[in-house]
């Protein structure tokens, strides 16, 4: 039995890999470009105003020069969801998922888990890349850590945008699909609207918990296909 589940999961993971393997690198490339932009911007700032001016601007004004990363992470969530769920949902193919000999939850949550891992990998790459930029600039740990703390809410926003995009694609009724899109937009805005470094601080955990509801919301959209409801 355990072997069966393992082989089912392996097959489901293989299916997801086949869907994303050709294009999954695009968000990582966009992230690399955004990180290069941050690095070059810091370099230009130092060339124009000197390193002390940059450091004191970061310390006093807490200017977030890397805010474009928030949109890279959110857009990447949409991109990953499109890669995984457009083939799954187009042409009423989603119905097939409910007629397989395995539970639809296995297929669906494997896909969501795969997407979560991709989003997580992108977030880790963003944190690592930005840490490298900060190390290159010589920023002290006391400054770099709060700056890096700005990224996790954006990663969470990426996951919410992933789930909401998947729900938009899975939802059979256009009006409800639009609402899923708006909810995703609202949630992403909520997580990315702060000022300064680590704006949510210790208040992030309720949002992490609330994010756990998003896969269920996706399931509710997919189930309407199974239940034949509009």
């Amino acid at each position: 039995m355990g072997g069966d589940i393992r082989s089912i999961l392996r097959a489901a993971c293989m299916k997801e890999w086949i869907k994303v393997r050709l294009l999954f690198w695009i968000p990582f490339a966009a992230l690399a470009a955004a990180l290069c932009d941050v690095s070059l911007m810091y370099k230009g700032f130092v060339a124009m105003h000197g390193a002390p001016a940059l450091w004191y601007e970061l310390i006093v004004k807490q200017t977030v020069h890397f805010s474009r990363l928030s949109w890279v992470l959110a857009a990447a969530g949409m991109f990953f969801a499109a890669l995984q769920f457009v083939p799954e949902c187009s042409g009423r193919r989603l119905r097939l998922m409910f007629h397989l000999p395995v539970s639809y939850r296995v297929s669906m949550y494997t896909a969501v888990g795969y997407g979560l891992l991709l989003n997580l990998a992108l977030l880790c790459a963003a944190v690592g890349g930005l840490a490298l930029v900060f190390a290159r600039m010589g920023f002290p740990r006391e400054l770099a850590l709060p700056m890096l703390g700005t990224l996790p809410p954006w990663g969470l926003a990426g996951f919410a945008s992933y789930c909401s995009t998947a729900a938009v694609l899975a939802e059979p009724r256009p009006a409800r699909a639009i609402l899923f899109g708006l909810l995703g937009f609202g949630y992403v805005t909520l997580l990315t609207a702060g000022n300064g470094y680590s704006p949510l601080g210790g208040n992030m955990w309720p949002y992490v918990l609330a994010c756990l509801l998003w896969p269920l919301a996706l399931e509710s959209a997919a189930l309407r296909v199974k239940e034949g409801q509009r």
Partner: peptide, 16 residues
Amino acid sequence: PRFAAMLICVLVLVWF
């Protein structure tokens, strides 16, 4: 699953 979707909707709306 629908209850989860509703909770997300409520959460977003009480902010938005």
